[in-house]
Simulated scan of single mutants.
Amino acid sequence: MRRWLAMAEQTLANHSDRLNAINIYPVADADTGTNLYLTVRSASQALAELDPSDVGTTIAAAGRAAMEQARGNSGTLFSVFLSAMAEPLAGQQRLNGPLLAAALHRAQLRSWSALSEPMPGTMLSVLEAAAHGAAEVESALNGDDSNHALAETLDGAVAAAREAVVLTESQLGVLADAHVVDAGGVGLLLILDCLRSVVVGEPLQEDLLDGLSGYRVQDPNIALDMPEQVGVEVMCTINLSPLAAAGLRMQLDELGDSVIMSAVSEQADDTGAYPWRLHVHVPCPATALDAIQAVGDPSNVSISALSPNAAVDAHDLL
C-alpha cells in the first residue's frame, strides 16, 4: 500500500500538467491534475512513518489524511474512494482478488452517495466500471485468493476503467464539444494502474493512455481557452450528527453546486456527531460559510477561486 500510493504520487506529478489541460468539468478551472497529486501526496506521506497492523488500517489512515487535505472535486472523491476501500479490508493481512473486488464495490457505492448530483462521464463512471470489471473476473475465478488471481482481478479492473475513460467523452456534452475525455477519470485510471503495477511487479502500461482524446502532449490546453468561471470552491471539516449533516447538504444544494459530503471516520464523539469533509461551489464564500457556521464550527477551511486566473477578494471572506 505504501508503494502503491508513493508510485501514484510520482505518476500524478508527471501527468498533472496534462490532466490540468483537459480539466473542463464540472468547471474549467485547470487544476484536476494538481488537486489529485496533492491529495494523493497527503495520503502517501501519512503512511511514511506508520507502523500498520493490517491492510485496512493502513488504507484507513491514508484515507483520513487524504480527506483532511483533499483538494477540489477530484481530490475529495479520491479521498472518499480510499476511505471506503479500507472498510472491507479491516483486519486483513494481505490483499487478494475477492477483497479487492469488495473494496472497489464499496468505494463505488460510497463515492456515488457522497455527491448530491452524481453524473456519468466522470471519475464516478470510471470507478463503477473498475468495480464491475474486478467483480466479473473475481466471480469467474470462484473466490481464488492467490496472488495470480489478484493480478488477473486488477487487470480486469484497469481494462474496464480504461474503456470507461474513453466513453466519458460521449457521456458529457461539454467533453464531447471540446473533444476531450474526463480529467478526473484519467487520473483515477493512472492510480489504478499504479496498484496493478506494484502488485505484479511491472511498469505502468505504456499504451494505457494512447488514443485518449485531448491527451497527447501536443494537444492544446483546452481548459485555459474556456470562459472564466464565476464563484469559489469552499471546503472544510465539521462535526455534525447524521441528521444535521443531511440538513446542511440540502441547504448547500440550494445555495450552490458540486456538493460533496462524506464522513471522515465512523467514530462519533460523545454527542453523537461525526467529522464530515465538505466541498461546495458557491458564488461567494459567505454564501456557504454562513450556512456552515450556523450548524457547527468548521475547521481546516479552504477557499479558492474557480477561475484559474482569478483570486478571492479579501472582503469576500468577511
Rank of each mutant, 00 (worst) to 15 (best):
V181R: 04
I260N: 06
T76E: 09
N221Y: 08
G33Y: 00
N35R: 12
S16G: 05
E128W: 07
I292D: 02
D193T: 02
L195K: 03
V230W: 10
A160L: 06
A114H: 01
E128R: 11
E266G: 08
E202I: 09
A62E: 04
T153N: 01
S44T: 03
M67L: 13
L175S: 04
Q205V: 02
M235Q: 09
L89N: 07
L204H: 05
A286R: 11
E117P: 15
G56H: 13
L172Q: 06
A28G: 11
I292A: 05
W4H: 00
G247I: 15
T32V: 05
S113T: 10
V40W: 00
N35Y: 15
V165W: 06
L204I: 06
A30C: 11
G272T: 08
W112Y: 08
G247M: 14
L36S: 08
L289K: 11
A151Q: 00
E87A: 15
E117D: 12
D219M: 06
G56A: 14
Q69E: 05
A245R: 07
A28Y: 08
G72D: 00
D225L: 13
A134E: 01
A157I: 05
P88A: 08
A244I: 14
V282L: 05
Q293C: 13
A164R: 14
S111A: 11
G184Y: 09
H179F: 07
L192N: 03
W276T: 07
L224E: 14
E68L: 15
T34I: 12
D257H: 12
V259P: 08
M7P: 03
G56E: 06
R94D: 08
V200G: 07
A223T: 03
A131G: 03
V165D: 03
Q267L: 14
A135E: 05
M226H: 13
M250C: 11
A183C: 02
N23R: 08
D207S: 14
E68W: 11
L19D: 04
V198E: 10
Y25S: 15
G72A: 07
L195D: 01
A164N: 11
P26H: 08
M119I: 11
P26W: 11
S74F: 09
A183D: 02
Q92S: 12
V232H: 01
E152R: 12
V174E: 12
Q45P: 01
V301L: 15
A286W: 02
V27W: 04
L50H: 04
G133R: 10
G184M: 04
L38M: 07
F78E: 06
A130T: 06
G143M: 15
E169F: 05
I191F: 07
A245V: 02
P308D: 01
A61I: 05
A61F: 07
G143Q: 14
N309Q: 09
A183I: 03
N35D: 13
L100Q: 00
A140R: 09
A263H: 10
A13L: 13
R162D: 04
S262E: 14
A311Q: 13
D269L: 04
Q171V: 05
N14G: 14
V181S: 04
A102R: 09
A8I: 02
G296R: 04
